[in-house]
Design a protein around this nucleic acid. Structure first.
Lengths: 153, 153
DNA sequence: CCTTGACCTCAAGTGAACTTGAGCATTTAC
DNA sequence: GTAAATGCTCAAGTTCACTTGAGGTCAAGG
C-alpha cells in the first residue's frame, strides 16, 4: 500500500473535508493545522488533520472566530495525538453557546410571531424595536457571537 | 412643540436604534434609508425610519445581507408610508429562514450530544465529520445563509 | 453674538476569512 | 521519459459592513 493512505495531499484533504485548497493553506499559515513536507516541498497531512479541519468548520458554524478556534485547539494535549475523549471534551464546550444561540433565535421567532399575530409592532413589545436581544446576537465581525453588546458611537 | 418630535436628527436616530451615526450614514448611502435635508444641509429623518433601521438590524440577525435587505425593503409599497401590515408581512417572510436555522442548530447540538455520550466521533455519525449540514449553515461571506452549498477549489 | 457640540463630506482604512494570479516545481500515470 | 495534473510561494485582491480621519459647517443655549 502506498503512503497515501496515511498521509494526505492537500488536494485529498480538501476533498475529504470540503474545504478549499487555498483555505487549507491559509489555515496552515495561521497555525491551525500542520503538515510535513516531501523532499520536493509538497505538503503531506496526517489523517489526524481531518479531525482538526472538521473541528474548525463546526466551530465556525457555532460562531467562533478563527482566533477562538486557535485558543480552543491550544487546549489539546501537547505530546500525544489527541484521542476521542480530547475532541469530545472540546466539542462539549460548545454546548452552552449553542444552547444560547438556539434560545435567542427562538425568542426572536416567537416575538415576531406575536407581532405578526396582533399587528402591534409597537416600540415596547416588538422584537423589531427591541435592540437589546438583537444586539446580543450580532457581535461586530462575528455574527452569532453572544457575549459582546453592540458598541455605540 | 418643536419639529424634533416629527423629524429626528441623525444623532437622535442613532440613540433610539442603537445604530452608530456612521452606520446610519452608510445605510443612507446604500439606499436603505432616506432623509430630507435642512437648509444648512443636515439630515432629518422621518420617524418611519426608526422602523426601517430596526428592520435592517433584525433582518441581519436572521442572516440577511444588506443586499437582501435592500430587496426586501423594495417590496414595501411605493406611494404611501408602509403600515403595520406591510411590516408584518415582510417580517413573516423570515419565519421559514428562522425555523430552518433553529432546526439546524438543534441537529448540530444533538449530534454533538450523541458524540460526546458515546465517544464515537466516527467519520459516519458525528457532526464533526459530516460537512454537508455544516456547509449548509455557513455561506461564504454570509454566515447562517442556508441556500448555497460551499464551493470547492 | 458666540461658543460648543452636533453635523457635514469624502477618501481611505479595518478586519475577518479567504481567493486569485503569476510564475515555477513536483508527481504520477502512461 | 514526458505530459498533465497537482502542488508551491508570495503578494495582492475581494467582500461585507462598517469605522476613522481630516478639514470644515450648522444650530441651539446662554
Amino acid at each position: 500500500m502506498p503512503a497515501t493512505t496515511l498521509e494526505l495531499t492537500i488536494g485529498a484533504l480538501s476533498e475529504r473535508t470540503g474545504v478549499t485548497v487555498s483555505a487549507l493553506r491559509f489555515y496552515e499559515a495561521e497555525g491551525l493545522i500542520a503538515s510535513t513536507r516531501t523532499a520536493g516541498g509538497q505538503r503531506r497531512f496526517h489523517r489526524e488533520m481531518l479531525r482538526r479541519v472538521s473541528f474548525i468548520r463546526v466551530a465556525q458554524t457555532v460562531g467562533l472566530s478563527l482566533e477562538e478556534v486557535r485558543t480552543a485547539l491550544a487546549s489539546l494535549p501537547e505530546g500525544r495525538t489527541p484521542d476521542e475523549k480530547d475532541w469530545a471534551t472540546l466539542s462539549a464546550s460548545w454546548r452552552p453557546r449553542l444552547d444560547q444561540q438556539i434560545a435567542m433565535m427562538e425568542r426572536l421567532r416567537d416575538r415576531l410571531e406575536r407581532c405578526i399575530g396582533c399587528g402591534c409592532l409597537s416600540l415596547k413589545v416588538c422584537a423589531m424595536f427591541n435592540p437589546e436581544d438583537v444586539a446580543a446576537l450580532r457581535g461586530p465581525g462575528a455574527r452569532f457571537v453572544i457575549d459582546e453588546p453592540a458598541k455605540r458611537s
